[in-house]
Structure formats: C-alpha cells, structure tokens
Design a protein around this nucleic acid. Structure first.
Lengths: 226, 226
DNA sequence: TCAAAAGTGTTCTGCCTACACCCATGA
DNA sequence: TCATGGGTGTAGGCAGAACACTTTTGA
C-alpha cells in the first residue's frame, strides 16, 4: 500500500457553563450512525494539515474564532475505521469562553467528562486533547486561549477550574500569572454584584500567542560564570 | 485529493563521544542526491505508524535496540518533497549509549548541533526531536533510554550533559533522580582509574518504561480535606 | 454598621542549586 | 601522605499553597 486516505480531526474545547466541553457532530449515516464524532474531513491537495483543520471547522461547523490550534498526534491503527484505510491527524482547538459560535443542528457541545457514545477512536482523541490542555495550562500562557479579551480574576478562576477539573485559588492564580508576566490590568473595574462587594479589577493577558513560561523545572544550566 | 503517500521518519538519537548524535543516511539518487536524510520509508498496509518505524529501522539500518520511541508530529506541507505528495509522521527514537548498532555503509552519525546538508524538511525534524528529548529529561525518567543498564553517577552525568547541551552537576543529578525514585544502587562498585580515587558506586534505573516524574509545577489540585 | 466580594501580607513547605567538606583508593 | 575522584552535609533561594487579614463596595 502506498496511497491512502488522510483526514484531519479536531477536538474543539471551550469552557461553557462551568465545565470543559467539546464540540461533537452526530453521524447520520453508517458506519456508526447515531454516534457522535469529531468535526473534520479529508485533507485537501494544496493545504497542510493545520490549514485543513482550520478550513473544515470554518466550513462545516462555522467555528472561526479559534484562539489556538495545535497538533496532537496521528492515529493510524489499520482498523481504526471500517472500509478503506484512513489515517487521522488529530488537533486540539480552543475557543474563548465568551464566544458562542453558530453551530449546525446536528452538532452539540458535551462536557469532556460526560461524553456520549462516540465513533471510532474519537473518545481517545478527546481525552488526549483534554490532557494536553491541562498540562499546558501549567507551564505555558495558554490560559489566554480560553479567556475572553478581558476578565476579572474571579472569572479567570472559574475558567481555570473548569479546564483543570479541580478548584483553583484566585489568590494563587493571580500571583502565579502575575509573577510570570502573563497578566496586566486594564485599569477598568467591574461593577459589583447585586449583593455588593468590592468591585473587581479587570485584567487581560499580555500576549495572545502561546509561549512557554516555565521552561524546565530541574537540571537547569549552571548559572556560574566561566 | 483523497489518496496520498505516507512515510514514517525517525530521528534516532544517541550519546556518542560526549555529544548527542543522530543517525543519517546519504541519498544516492535524485532528488537531493548527496544530501543526508532520516531513515524511514512507506507505511505498510497492516501496521500502524509506530510499528512501521520500528520495522523500517530494523530492516534498513539494523537498529533494533531502541530503548524508547515516540511520535513527534506530522509534516504535511504540500511541497515538502518534489513529485507526488507524501506526508511524513516523524518520530524520536533513542538508543542507549553502550550500544553500537551495525549500520550500512551509506549511513553515519552526526552531532545534532553540526548537521550536514540535509534533505527536505529533515533538519527541522532533528531539531524537534532534540528539543523534545531535552524537555522530557527534565520532567520524566527518560534518562534510562540514553543510559546503559548500569553506570556510575559520573558516567550518567556525561550522558545528561551531552544530551542537554550544558554542564550538569553530578551531585545534583544524583539527588534529583534519587529523590524521584529513579535510581537504585546495584551494590557493585566500579574500579578506580589509573590515577586512583575512590571507586564509584554503580547504579541502575528502577524503571525502563517512560513515565512522568514531575507532573505539574503549578496550579496543583488543592490538598485541603473537604 | 454589616455582609459580601476582592485583593494583599505572611507563613510554611518543598525542591533545587551551589559549595564546603569528608571518604576511599592508588601511587 | 598526597593527589584524585566519589559522595554527603548543609545553607540559601525561590516558588507555590494556604490562610489570615485588610479594602471596597451595596444595602
């Protein structure tokens, strides 16, 4: 065999209603009719895989506001789908929590920890996307990709807590991100809630492209001169 | 387009002569005759990409002692090679420093920081493999894949220094790896050198499968009960 | 004046680096 | 007993978690 099909698949993640959710599309036809699958499609002749996944998401599910896209891994088991062999390049895509993309009738958002019956190996892809996101929130500035353009620390804490799957302290979150130079105040303050309380300062991320903030924990290069 | 070629390519890295080196193969035919390229080949019909890369390395360059193999990324630029389009799944492969595989006449080891003229996008693949290795030495037990079955701390320091590209303190290396439970003494001691000196204790890695030793640096789950 | 929410000060802990010092061997 | 290399003790620093405390608002 030297010619085979190649598709791109995207696990598009967004924090919605205090949980990390993924966009899935319900299959109308066999195989696996009724099962839910990741958006994507065949790689085009003149595009690389990243361009392809961005195009497919824009065309098929009208998701254009991707704040971050990164390749996860190739899934290549010979029997991963019935019929002619198809390889898949899987992607992680992120959408800021203030966006609500128009999606077709046969697509829905599902919490990543409560997936419906999924098609083929798509369940594994979603879990891999989730784990990649969780890791990178720790050692990169990737929070910008889940957050709106500006936010209070409380709002940001909700987003991090949903993405990470555990409670997050607003105090420590602010300190960690500030020390790393990821946050800057906009100067504005949010309005207090109905129950009163001190109005929150509004922040934004200083950079909206991903970079590594915590390069290596151990075995650093020596600092000694000579 | 819905049928296309797919190859697997491996950046096989090994610490040789105090430097991190990669195995390259010199192209005899056009395109890019004379340039050096990564070992690999077409994906077979009944194998996944990892099985394929292991098979190709065993067949073509007689490398069978791979201590670790992991997928890096798909390279898919439409013009990455002339002629019919071919996607490539790139891998990182590691060989322990005490092995010296039999390699064909047209293959050679090169330091990753002094590569010859390379074919296509293979230079980028080597750099990516190098960076992946360097990162993982910090937060996983991946050192086992570069080290012989047993070694002194000094020998291990040489290996880490070559792989990381900077000096490494034997003191701190031992402490970090011991604290993480990666090392255990074999009970043996090495013989002293010609100039005397205290004989070194011999160690081995407790586990020879990769796992993460330093899961997340920040934003850990809260430890508070209830 | 009180409750609620935001933000800061401070302590504690654990991990890593650096470096001084002690140990075991061959000549 | 001295040089050589191996190994340990220990101090310093830094980053993160936890929590007490202060600040600022609405009612």
């Amino acid at each position: 065999m030297d010619r085979l099909g190649h598709e791109v698949l995207a696990a598009v993640l967004q924090v919605r209603s205090w949980s990390l959710q993924v966009l899935l599309w319900q299959r109308a036809k066999e195989p696996q009719a009724g099962h839910w699958s990741l958006p994507g499609g065949q790689l085009g002749a003149t595009e690389d895989v990243e361009a392809s996944v961005r195009r497919q998401l824009a065309e098929k599910v009208d998701v254009r506001q991707l704040s971050h896209v990164e390749q996860l891994q190739v899934f290549s088991a010979p029997n991963r789908m019935p019929g002619a062999r198809v390889l898949a390049t899987a992607f992680l895509g992120l959408v800021p929590s203030d966006n609500d993309p128009e999606i077709p009738a046969d697509t829905r958002w599902f919490p990543v920890d409560a997936l419906p019956a999924t098609a083929f190996d798509h369940h594994a892809i979603v879990l891999r996307a989730r784990d990649r996101l969780r890791s990178k929130l720790s050692y990169t500035n990737l929070g910008f990709a889940l957050a709106p353009p500006s936010f209070t620390i409380s709002e940001l804490r909700e987003i991090y807590a949903a993405a990470l799957g555990h409670r997050v302290s607003a105090t420590n979150l602010q300190r960690v991100l500030s020390r790393r130079g990821q946050l800057e105040p906009t100067g504005q303050t949010a309005v207090s809630g109905p129950a009163g309380g001190r109005p929150a300062a509004v922040f934004r991320f200083t950079c909206r492209d991903m970079f590594i903030t915590d390069p290596f924990a151990v075995l650093r290069p020596p600092t000694t001169r000579r």
